[in-house]
Design a protein around this nucleic acid. Structure first.
Lengths: 340, 340
DNA sequence: TGTTAGCACTCTTTGCGGTCGAGTGCTAAT
DNA sequence: ATTAGCACTCGACCGCAAAGAGTGCTAACA
């Protein structure tokens, strides 16, 4: 026994129906559908086969069938293969987009809001990873005797400011000299290239060694690690509209994941190479999300791919719609952040 | 009939019990309590009086009584009068505090987290209102031909950066000249005093008028209005632990309030003068919060009171504990933000 | 006069049995 | 290969009775 065309057609009809209703699907429901010319009995036989093949499950005898993880996997793989962007959907979505220009934080915040409004699921967007951005300018602004603000301007409108501690006896003049020097020397480098450049520089320079070490440390650790973990969530409460979360305990567990960056961050680790990554149910490592699906996609700023967007919904999520939304939003973010 | 000492004692016992259990309180429960030397029948008579006075309500005949809004009002007013800070509680709370120094955003984010962990309710903290801070330094950092970053350093470790548009033909030299000039002229002024100073300045200056107008606009509108509305939420999912939110629809309504800054912001408008402001149930204007209480307090940075913290919980909230937490956290934030 | 024991009453909660309906699996007919 | 027919299963729903918690009232008591 294997999955012939008719079985696949029936499976697909069941999945479509279950996605819309969240209610176990019976043979009569499928039989009534336009384009299906078989009686409930025939469908029943096929459904029985599909269950044996592991694509369907029955909550109890005498209930309809619900799709298994394996079924969703088949479904989305098929979806991805045949391309899924629906022009009409995309047009409708553009109405939600109301991103105001400004700092990166504002942009991704409104993007996440829009993405969650478009899909009615929960959206996640990480700030651009700085590793792939190029430094355009470095500037210090003195704050007090012992602190200064270091501003790093990159291409793609991304600005980071960090507080650094100053060694004794560094005056304003020194700082502005350093600003000029670092801007000149680091221009057009990525964060990852900075260390090498520093090593080289430090052969020629002897003064302000201590400060430079501090600067390097802040650049490498704070910038690359801490700040790039910036992440925003939109539409946290959207999932509570679905019957899957009628139980408050499940809702609470889900929401507490959203509150913890540590647990959320791995979700946005995007499977390299592909345009989209779809993880269904237990394919997510978090037990709280074992009946959620997470779809991620990357967005580009300039010429590198840098940030990740994700949508979290129930496993019976409207995959096609979400893929359209992500694809649209990826272009939108790129446009806004690359535009100066 | 009026509220004599014994009635008050009984009312208090009922409120204390209801706060802990969320279950309507019966006469026997109170009678059994240590320190109460009366039989259930006597308590019943008093409870009947208290109901007539509007302090208690009965969900249905033959259920216990639950406190009314009026009762909580009496309870907290009494609490506030007799001072409520509990040393032990405060000591226990300091364990939750793990605020890392850094930008204001980071500080208030971890403070909100800590506040929600301490209380098990939802915490809200607004960033310091800039109106009352004093400018220490203004600096421009060129971004591109048409944009620059304006950095405003204030006392109290608060830094704001904003993107401004440059008129044609403004070069780097002009910008650094302006940085020096503005730093000199605006030093030690509040945002609210800036306009007057600008009027005065503009009599002497003729060049760069256009840029200065832009700067003034950004300072007044963006800084004072937009940025001061920055606000963080901690422990959004905490309230789902309470039986009040066993119904998912209520939970969803509550959470959707937390997602909308527009609706949330008025909650942090603190009643002037008092150390704490407590709004019980319908005293909040939001219908979604009609069975929540909101306690707010201000924190200071430097010498002015500048930001507001708030805790949202069910009306049967542990008022004393929350007051202790807010009082502790106010001092903690002040210490961290004022410390340089 | 304030307090309390006793008792009838009310109302919710819980458990149980019965009915209904949706859906299945199997068999036999087409 | 398909389908009509039928017995069977199981959850959802309903009504009912018993249990339990709590009240209000009355009468007795210190």
């Amino acid at each position: 026994m294997f999955l012939d065309e008719r079985k696949f057609m029936i499976l697909r009809a069941i999945i479509d129906d279950y996605i819309m209703t969240a209610v176990p699907v019976g043979s009569r429901t499928i039989s009534r559908k336009a384009g299906v010319g078989f009686s409930p009995a025939t469908i029943r036989n096929e459904m029985s086969d599909l269950e044996e093949l592991g694509y369907l499950a029955q909550p109890h005898t005498s209930a309809g069938r619900i799709p298994s993880t394996k079924a969703y996997r088949l479904y989305v793989d098929h979806l991805l293969k045949e391309g899924m962007v629906n022009r009409d959907e995309v047009r409708r979505m553009s109405g939600y987009l109301n991103i105001r220009c400004g700092q990166v934080g504002d942009v991704i915040r409104s993007a996440a809001q829009a993405l969650s409004d478009m899909t009615n699921y929960t959206a996640l967007i990480s700030a651009p990873q700085l590793e792939s951005l190029r430094i355009r300018r470095v500037q210090f602004v003195p704050l007090s005797e012992h602190n200064a603000l270091m501003i790093v301007v990159t291409n793609a409108f991304v600005i980071k400011d960090l507080v650094i501690r100053l060694p004794d006896g560094v005056d304003d003049e020194t700082l502005s000299g350093l600003s000029r020097m670092l801007t000149r020397e680091l221009q057009d480098l990525c964060i990852s290239q900075v260390r090498a450049r520093f090593e080289e520089l430090s052969r020629h320079l002897t003064e302000n060694r201590k400060l430079l070490v501090e600067v390097l440390d802040v650049l490498e650790n704070q910038l690359a690690e801490r700040e790039s973990r910036q992440m925003v969530v939109g539409g946290s409460s959207n999932l509570l509209n679905y019957p899957e979360y009628a139980d408050v305990r499940k809702a609470r567990d889900f929401l507490s994941v959203l509150e913890s960056r540590e647990r959320l961050f791995p979700l946005l680790r995007h499977a390299g190479g592909m345009e989209f990554s779809i993880r269904i149910g237990p394919e997510n490592d978090l037990p709280e999300l074992s009946d959620c699906s997470v779809i991620t996609a990357v967005y580009r700023v300039g010429d590198h791919s840098t940030g990740t967007m994700g949508v979290i919904g129930p496993t019976r999520m409207q995959y096609g719609k979400v893929l359209s939304a992500l694809s649209y939003m990826g272009r939108a973010i790129t446009d806004i952040l690359s535009d100066e």
